[in-house]
């Protein structure tokens, strides 16, 4: 039995299935939450008839989507067209695999991270590698639909994804340089023992956190970075030609992406499941984790409903003029502080 509990295959399944279920549910509920939240912000009600507070609207939408006719455009590249909706869901779910959802102080006073599908030695590299692949489904869908709007959306999406990947990786390097490990559980443990990165490295940590957060918004194609969707110009972006569940999978992936982005920002900069003085039992960890990432999650939707969209060239300028050099400087400043602290 105890042998089974350390078998990575067993652990992968034992943690993986609940994680997938939870993330799928969060992705579905996020659509309901977004509509209710937007309704509240715009002084209207939002979905409110199906179930208590309209929460079963998700189910109703799901059933509607499943019933829709599956249409593949005649001139579409069928292979890529059908492959594209599967990939983003897979990539988002897989990138959540290395996030530790709880942790506790063991008997020797060491922080132990727990409840992750795989405690990879290269956890953050795994997440960033998958984030780098996120442009493929956008490009595939845009190209394979054989429609000028989707093609434009795909080009914009790839250009944006590739550009914002650089500040994302650089901002994620700040925790790596500060803690000296690539493993997400190691980064959380360091923060539990030395203080959360967002203020442990004054100003630099907070700025890196903001850069990481905004860059992951851009990777998830959320407003103010939703150029690839741009309902008003590109009639919904790369998913225009997709019907029913195939289009739904793109949306699902996007909503799950916001949740995973919030969870990652919490893991890297806000101490993961650690809460000063309140982490005496492992069962408390998920509460703090959900509270922290929930706050960021709400912030993402708050921004989405109160902000405007950047123009494509403004978006690129913001990235290459401000974010890329800024994140490089932040990595250097972190390295300097780490070096100074080793001297003291």
């Amino acid at each position: 039995m105890s042998e089974l509990l350390v078998n990575p295959w067993f652990l992968g399944f034992a943690y993986g299935f609940p994680l997938i279920t939870v993330l799928m549910t969060v992705g579905g509920l996020a659509t309901w939450f977004e509509r209710r939240f937007a309704g509240r912000m715009q002084n209207r009600v939002g979905p409110s008839f199906v179930g208590p507070f309209g929460i079963l609207q998700v189910l109703a939408d799901g059933i509607k989507m499943m019933q829709k006719e599956d249409i593949v455009p005649r001139d579409a590249d069928k292979f890529l067209f059908n492959l594209a909706p599967i990939l983003p869901v897979f990539l988002v779910l897989a990138s959540a695999a290395t996030i530790p959802f709880t942790g506790y102080w063991d008997d020797t006073g060491q922080w132990q991270s727990w409840l992750m599908v795989a405690d990879l030695d290269i956890g953050i590299l795994w997440v960033l590698a998958l984030a780098g692949l996120m442009v493929f489904p956008i490009w595939m869908a845009g190209w394979a639909s054989n429609n000028k709007y989707t093609l434009l959306a795909g080009m914009r999406g790839v250009a944006q994804g590739v550009s914002y990947e650089i500040p994302l990786v650089m901002a994620a390097l700040v925790p790596v340089v500060a803690t000296g490990t690539l493993s997400l559980s190691g980064i959380v443990a360091w923060q539990a023992e030395n203080g959360w990165l967002v203020w442990r490295f004054p100003i630099v940590g907070a700025l890196a956190f903001i850069l990481f957060f905004l860059s992951s918004l851009a990777e998830a194609n959320r407003i103010p970075f939703d150029i690839p969707e741009a309902e008003s110009e590109l009639i919904g972006g790369v998913i225009v030609e997709y019907t029913g569940l195939k289009g739904g999978m793109f949306l699902m992936a996007e909503y799950m992406h916001t949740a995973v982005a919030a969870a990652l920002a919490v893991t890297l900069f806000l101490g993961g499941s650690h809460m000063p003085g309140l982490s005496f039992h492992w069962a408390l960890g998920p509460i703090w984790f959900v509270l922290k990432s929930g706050a960021l999650f709400v912030l993402i939707y708050w921004i989405r409903w109160s902000w405007f969209r950047f123009r494509a060239d403004q978006l690129m300028e913001l990235c290459w003029v401000l974010f890329v050099p800024g994140s490089l400087i932040l990595v250097m400043l972190t390295a300097v502080q780490v070096w100074v602290e080793t001297l003291l």
Partner: peptide, 11 residues
């Protein structure tokens, strides 16, 4: 493997 995916596949 991670670097391979980031640089070759991603780049």
């Amino acid at each position: 493997a991670g670097i391979q995916v980031v640089l070759y596949t991603g780049g």
